[in-house]
């Protein structure tokens, strides 16, 4: 494990990375069906070739202000522990290799977002890459049932 291969994408001015093995595909934004009573960060569900998968709006998840959808907006379809879900990102930047030694543990005071989402921070020259902890993105606060 000398190096990791990552897919990187951006939200606003921040750049994020996920392990390439967990990224199943990258698609344009299809029609998204809203799901009532779902957690706010779940934007809805989409049809991925006959399977219905949830889509997480990462801006909402990370407490960032919402932005308009652009031509570059994409959904990165991830597979974590055999569960498939998508994350909406502003744009996908590149696929790169990162030396394991260039990865540092998450800073105690994270970059304005919940540090449990962060697995580490990668440095590529001057660029800072936030490596995401995918288990936390969907898994943690499961839908708690509430009656209206």
């Amino acid at each position: 494990m000398a190096e990791e291969q990552l897919v990187t994408f951006s939200l606003g001015s921040e750049e994020f990375g996920v392990e390439i093995m967990k990224a199943q595909e990258i698609i344009r934004i299809p029609p998204i069906t809203r799901v009532p009573k779902a957690p706010s960060y779940v934007e809805g569900v989409i049809n991925l070739r006959g399977n219905v998968i949830p889509v997480v709006n990462l801006r909402v998840r990370f407490g960032m202000p919402l932005d308009e959808e652009t031509d570059l907006s994409r959904i990165v379809v991830l597979q974590v522990r055999r569960r498939v879900f998508g994350v909406r990102v502003d744009r996908v930047t590149e696929v790169l290799r990162l030396d394991s030694e260039a990865i540092e543990p998450p800073p105690p005071v994270a970059l304005g977002m919940d540090s449990s989402f962060i697995r580490g921070v990668g440095k590529i020259g001057e660029r800072l890459l936030i490596l995401l902890n995918l288990d936390q993105l969907m898994g943690e606060d499961r839908v708690n049932e509430q009656t209206a």
Binding site: P36, R142, V143
Partner: peptide
């Protein structure tokens, strides 16, 4: 009928 998946299962009314 398709399942909404583990993440969204058990939502009231759906």
């Amino acid at each position: 009928i398709k399942t909404l998946g583990e993440y969204l299962n058990g939502l009231p009314g759906i």
